[in-house]
């Protein structure tokens, strides 16, 4: 775990505008990559939700895609059955994913790291198989098609070039980032970090450890559900891979690549990961898998704290 900085003030630093300005600039600089960019924003939101669960609350999970998929199927099914309004779809997807997260959280909060890992892995696989078998509802391996989205605000249709998707996903990402940042800087967020650092001492301070962890896990699940719903709405398709194990593993890699427990790590890691994947996997998917594995090993041995952790260490050294 990275060293926690001093108490956060919650006040915005000027440098924090940079990633958002960059994101807006990319719309005009790389018009051919708007669809990819909207996928990056969705993945970043997903990584952000994992940051809350893993980076802040310290809950090791290998099945976070379960909630991504729940959100995606909820939004997809709504739209496929005539409810095409995007924002209410998001809200419902968040609610369903939160319910799922709440149910799983009771199994997760008590156990050791190993038990958590197994339960989340098991639930993830269970949902994947359930969606696979319930083909009458989900379309099974063929995926859920016939998702017909309504227009944004009743005005902007989702187009093939990803213009509406770009603005929509970026706006939702920003809104939920502000929300998550607020949560992380709140007394609740601080107590999560304290539980992560020393779980045994927190009850002595009067903090209800299990209830806090339940809340954090549920919130993380809800945000993951929104990310899944965004993918379903902007691509107008839901595949089984929204629930797949590799999605849980990939988001874990994105988060630790950027740096867990610092919110911006989720954004940086996702951007680097997705662009690298787009470049390298296009050349040869087997090579990509190999380099991904090597990258993971390298993060553990040389670059703990990920990109932002390494940047922090560099800055400290320069200042000295």
């Amino acid at each position: 775990m990275s060293r926690a900085p001093a108490l956060p003030s919650g006040r915005w630093h000027a440098a924090e505008a940079i990633p958002w300005l960059l994101a807006i600039a990319c719309f005009f600089l790389f018009p051919g990559y708007r669809v990819l960019a909207s996928h990056v924003f969705i993945a970043a939101l997903f990584a952000l939700s994992l940051d809350l669960v893993l980076g802040y609350a310290g809950i090791l999970t290998l099945g976070h895609a379960a909630f991504f998929g729940l959100g995606a199927y909820t939004a997809g099914l709504l739209a496929a059955h005539g409810w095409g309004e995007p924002f209410s779809g998001l809200a419902l997807a968040a609610a369903v994913a939160a319910l799922g997260g709440l149910a799983v959280s009771f199994l997760v909060v008590r156990g050791t790291d190993l038990a958590r890992l197994m339960v989340t892995l098991g639930v993830g696989l269970l949902l994947y198989e359930a969606a696979n078998r319930a083909a009458w509802l989900t379309g099974g391996v063929d995926g859920l098609s016939g998702v017909a989205m309504g227009k944004l605000f009743g005005v902007f249709p989702f187009d093939l070039f990803g213009n509406a998707a770009y603005a929509y996903t970026l706006a939702v990402l920003f809104a939920l980032f502000v929300f998550t940042r607020r949560v992380a800087a709140s007394p609740f967020g601080l107590s999560l970090r304290a539980i992560r650092e020393n779980r045994a001492r927190m009850p002595a301070l009067g903090a209800p450890v299990e209830r806090r962890l339940v809340a954090a896990f549920t919130l993380g699940a809800a945000i993951a559900g929104v990310a899944g719903a965004l993918l379903a709405q902007t691509t107008q398709f839901v595949g089984l891979d929204t629930l797949a194990f590799h999605r849980s593993a990939d988001v874990l890699v994105m988060l630790v690549l950027g740096g867990a427990g610092r919110l911006y790590g989720a954004l940086v890691g996702t951007a680097v990961f997705m662009v690298a994947q787009d470049r390298l996997a296009g050349i040869d998917p087997v090579y990509w898998q190999f380099w991904l594995g090597l990258l993971l090993v390298a993060i553990v041995f040389v670059a703990r704290g990920g990109i932002l952790g390494a940047a922090d260490a560099l800055r400290r050294r320069l200042r000295r």
Binding site: Y287, Q289, F290, L292, G293, L295, L296, V297, I299, V300
Partner: peptide, 12 residues
């Protein structure tokens, strides 16, 4: 993370 990395490399 380390052991998933190792697994991916072995598969590739």
């Amino acid at each position: 993370l380390f052991s998933i990395g190792l697994t991916l490399m072995s598969i590739a």
